[in-house]
Structures are given as C-alpha cells and as structure tokens.
Design a protein around this nucleic acid. Sequence first.
DNA 1: CTATGTGCAAAATTTTTGCATAAAA
DNA 2: TTTTATGCAAAAATTTTGCACATAG
Lengths: 143, 143
Amino acid sequence: MGKIRDKFRRYLSEKGLKSTQQRDIILEEFLAAGSHLSIEELYLRIREKHPNIGYATVYRTLKLFSECGIAEEHQFGDGQTRYESVIGEEHHDHLICTRCKRIIEFEDPRIETLQDEVARRHNFKIENHRLELYGLCADCQKP
Amino acid sequence: MGKIRDKFRRYLSEKGLKSTQQRDIILEEFLAAGSHLSIEELYLRIREKHPNIGYATVYRTLKLFSECGIAEEHQFGDGQTRYESVIGEEHHDHLICTRCKRIIEFEDPRIETLQDEVARRHNFKIENHRLELYGLCADCQKP
DNA sequence: CTATGTGCAAAATTTTTGCATAAAA
DNA sequence: TTTTATGCAAAAATTTTGCACATAG
C-alpha cells in the first residue's frame, strides 16, 4: 500500500514537481474511497474535511495520478470521467449493468493472452487496455 | 447497405417517429463518412452542403442511430464522443495509437467466446462490449 | 389536424485556464 | 529566492433543453 505513495513521491521528484499537502490529501482520499469514483464524487468527499481545496486542484491532481500510473481514467458512458486506482492489483476489466449501473470487476488471463497476440500481429505495443461488457446483471434480468 | 436505411425506417415507424429530410441527410452523411467521426466532424461535413441543419439535430439524430442499433458511441479519451456505423459489419475492436491517434480495427472471435464465458459465469447478459488496446502503433515505435 | 421534429439560442455540464497569492524546495 | 502549486473565477468545450415554428403522417 505504501507502494502507491512511494511511486507518486518518486514521480514528483523525478519531474521536479512538488509534494504538497493538497496532493497528499487527495491521494489519501482517493485511496480510501472505493473504485470508480467520478471526479465530482471525490471532490465532494474531500470537500467535507477540507472545504478549501478547489475543484481545479482535484482535476489537476487526478491527471497527475493518471500520468504517473497510479490511477486509470475511465469513461463508462454517463458523461463523468471516473478514476480507479491501479497499482498492486491485477489488471481487471468490467461488467457494467446498463440498468442499475452496477460495476462488476473480473479478470481473465486468457483474454489478456489473446490481446497480446493481436497486438503482436499488428506490431503494436500495448501500454494499456480497456475491456467493458455492457448489459444486464443477474438481478436486473429478473422482471 | 440498404439494410441500414431499412432498419432505421423500420425503427422510426415502430416508435411512431417521423422520417424527415434532416434525418435522411444525416444518415447519408454518416454512412458516407469514414468511421469514428466525432459529432463535430460530422456536423461540419453536413454543414457544407446543408448549412441550415443545426447542431442539436445532429446530436439528436446520432442518439437515435445509437438507440436503433445502427451506430455505436465511443469515447476514446479525447473528450469527443465518436460514432461508428455498426450494421452489416462484424463487431470489431480497436487498437488506438496514443501517439499518432491512429485507430486500427481488429476482431478475434476467440476473445468474444471468452467474454461470453465470463458473462455466463456472472449470470450477466451482454448487450454490447468494448475492447480497446492503447499503445504505440508500428510506425510510432520507430525513433 | 395533430403529433413529432427542427433551429436557434440559452442553459447545463464538465473540464481547462489565467492570474495573483501561497507554499515547497 | 526561485519555481511550482493553489484557489478562485472566468473561459472553453461539449451536450442538453425550451420554445415557437415547420413538417410529416
């Protein structure tokens, strides 16, 4: 868990950026909060304890997280950018219920293997990927 | 090719919606244009020949296309919603070059099979899916 | 006729930016 | 002390909406 914080510190110092109170607060809140938070949701949570942190700082800081590889941006199609923390966990993909908006995570190494194969066929070097299956979750299929 | 137009007509009449000049124009332009057009790009093209068609109509019509299943919405992470025509073709996925922004299409039925299996395991009913591999295309790996 | 669609401009959303001030190195 | 970060508010950018008028059925 300290790994994420270390990676962030390291990234900041490599780039000559500064470690600030706000960045620490936002990182802690980001890690404490569950996955798939929208920027607004995160901002509101932070706001509760730290009413003086601005929206722009949250935007800028999340972008930093994403650049340094500790968070991933997602667009699940509701017009809100969501971020998910990414280090330490295995990469996972998503089942997204179009009715109740529930997000279920899964992973399947066999799919990853096939992706690598596709990439190789196109001389493509994968940095990242996104697999999302949209549909109805078990509950929402019941009438 | 007439299939798409037919499906659209059928959808309109099923829903009691009307077939209008604008909808026809937008559909033709959408089909004529390559894949992955952003709403703005499409609007500008339409604008050239039909300067009186409004932005809102293009938005509303593309949403219709997507509802009736002849187009698919994509967000490739540049803040622009893109649409792609979908009928008649096999479903395909995307390799997206993060440097030159090129989009390469591919399909792999074996991946689809595994997706179905994952869905079954979660009692999930897939309506749609999206697989995007981000990274560097062959050209952009050369220094 | 009647219901739906259109165009426009205004509003709502989401994200980015400029700039004076504050804080880190 | 010099550079980078922050907060605010303003600006951009994207998408949606309200409404009077137009058009399809």
